[in-house]
Write a protein that binds this DNA or RNA. Structure first.
Lengths: 151, 151
DNA sequence: TATTTAGTTCTGTTGTTCCCGAACTAAATA
DNA sequence: TATTTAGTTCGGGAACAACAGAACTAAATA
């Protein structure tokens, strides 16, 4: 793979990552910015560089960056004698990812348990199915916790 | 908790579940239908019952139900001598849930690995961070597989 | 054959999201 | 003090999504 192909592939990856993030509720422009900060060789971009590179307006950039910051997906650094912010991706570690999965499962399991507790017939089809799922999820959560302790 | 309170709480839960599902990209009406099929004591609803219960148009119901079917979130049964479809929730078992988590992690890890492989400097900050995350994710995937084999 | 039933499809309305351009601001610089 | 820099905020338009209503259809029934 020559240099040109490599760059082309990187641009394609930015698109892939962008679409991937869109599915998770991140707006298109923000997803591409995050992708760019992840894949490009240059790993710190100023506001203006982002505006130019992505060909977006300053307002779009401003909103997208604030959004990404709130999600803790990016961060910025400044350098003495330079007013510019240098944005870079902020990687959430594996532990945080696991924490996210765990939380989601916990929330769902809690809801399922409440659904069960509110059933008139606690042996109804749905109640039984939910019990099984809730149980499985709770067990899975303990596995996640073991994993977290190990790493 | 008396009967009235119980029903009230069930209705509230439908809302909670609906909002929860909206976050996952399911449209509002579809989310409430799914919630209803999950929490109510009556566990099979006809098209018309859903229209009436949710106070939505037939077209909304038709679209929402088709959507939920495509996602394999609901299914319907028919009974001999009765043209109506009886819709009910279709629970994905724990294994399927785990499979979903696994797939997501796998996709992300694959993307990360490609990002790394396309870096000019494979020891750059991002490259190193990504390597660590990818490794952690791959390890986590094996844990998931062990869990799947166990249940 | 005419009507009813159980939905589906089409068209239009409303609301929301995404983004842009322009005006604005606060700090640094000339 | 005037200008430049580095953004933010505001107002608006285009595109899209969610839903309703009405017209339609295919199968069953009278």
């Amino acid at each position: 793979m020559n240099e040109h192909e490599r760059i082309t592939r990187q641009k394609e990856l930015i698109e892939t990552i962008g679409r991937n993030l869109e599915k998770q509720g991140i707006q298109p422009v923000a997803g591409r910015i995050l992708g760019m900060l992840m894949v490009m060789d240059k790993e710190e971009y100023t506001f203006d560089e982002i505006v130019e590179e992505m060909k977006i307006s300053k307002s779009s950039a401003s909103n997208a960056l604030r959004n990404l910051e709130l999600r803790e997906a990016i961060e910025y650094v400044t350098y003495p004698g330079d007013r510019k912010r240098y944005f870079r991706i902020s990687f959430s570690d594996v532990n945080k990812l696991i924490e996210g999965v765990k939380k989601k499962f916990q929330t769902d399991a809690d809801i399922f348990d409440e659904v069960i507790s509110l059933k008139k017939d606690s042996n109804s089809k749905n109640a039984c199915a939910l019990k099984a799922i809730s149980k499985g999820m709770r067990y899975f959560i303990t596995i996640l916790e073991n994993f977290q302790n190990k790493i």
